[in-house]
């Protein structure tokens, strides 16, 4: 599996003329990578992810998966949104199965598959609960299980932990790494949180704002992935470099 963005451009028509949100984005992502795209608010991160998801069509350029151009949304790309998108009337179990149901998987098989992924995200005891009975972190874990149940080629995540408190967020980071190692899934995640990106990703794309472009590509090489690594000097180097880059972008954006 590989995911490519080739000369991706996205403009929006506004009252004051076209707004260039993405400009000449080129990315290459290989099977099994954990990629984070980091950028400030309004740098076009969500827009970029929507092009990959096929929820929106690029103005120019294209997104390819295994060489095939993306033309619309589909279950070969699992998506986890920033806001909670569980179906409030379905139990956790039904939510997890729902993608398989939509794709015509027989009941028995989809139940087994859902149970497997509910176990992976550690929510088997909550299978019968309704989403409103879950905490924010649990909701996002269900959303991840739901996306994974269709065994997608890539898991797309739009600031999935943005609305969680610091401790839940940290727990979710460790959970994500464990999940990634266990399922060997390719992850493309966007975030504005630099530490989150450095901790999770094996490669980072730093995006500049207005228009959104790739300012820097950075491979992350850290000895071991656990919370302790956050005290490692190399972790700080990566973080500081990205922070400086984003600070600089912020100033430029203000100066305009």
């Amino acid at each position: 599996m590989y995911l490519q963005m080739v000369g991706l451009n996205k403009h929006f028509e506004t009252k004051n003329g076209p707004l260039v949100v993405l400009k000449d984005i080129d990315m290459n992502i290989k099977q099994g990578e954990f990629i984070c795209a980091v950028g400030a608010s309004g740098s076009g991160k969500s827009t970029l992810l929507r092009q990959i998801a096929g929820l929106d069509a690029p103005t120019a350029g294209e997104v390819r998966i295994d060489g095939q151009t993306v033309t619309g949304p589909g279950p070969d790309r699992g998506m986890v949104f920033q806001h909670y998108t569980l179906y409030p009337w379905m139990s956790v179990q039904k939510n997890t199965e729902f993608g398989l149901k939509l794709q015509g998987v027989p009941k028995k098989i989809r139940r087994e598959q859902a149970n497997y992924y509910l176990n992976v995200v550690g929510l088997t005891p909550f299978a019968k609960a309704l989403p409103k009975q879950l905490s924010g972190g649990m909701k996002q874990r269900v959303a991840i299980a739901r996306a994974l149940a269709s065994e997608p080629k890539v898991l797309l995540m739009d600031e999935p932990f943005g609305s969680l408190d610091v401790h839940t967020k940290e727990a979710m980071h460790e959970f994500m790494l464990e999940l990634w190692q266990r399922t060997q899934i390719t992850v493309f995640m966007i975030t504005h949180d630099v530490e989150e990106a450095v901790f999770l990703a094996n490669r980072i794309y730093a995006l500049g704002s207005r228009p959104g472009t790739v300012r820097k590509e950075m491979a992350i090489d850290l000895p071991n992935r656990s919370t302790a690594v956050k005290r490692h000097s190399r972790f700080h180097d990566y973080r500081d470099e990205l922070m400086d880059l984003m600070r600089q972008h912020g100033r430029e954006a203000l100066a305009v």
Binding site: L55, P73, G74, R77, F81, W89
Partner: peptide
């Protein structure tokens, strides 16, 4: 009906009719 909910359904492999009947209507 939240747009995200409809778009999640598309991402999960739902076509328009299934989205209407199984997501929009119950919501």
């Amino acid at each position: 009906v939240p747009k995200d909910l409809i778009e999640s359904t598309f991402m999960l492999g739902g076509n328009r009719l299934a989205t209407l009947l199984q997501v929009i209507f119950p919501y």
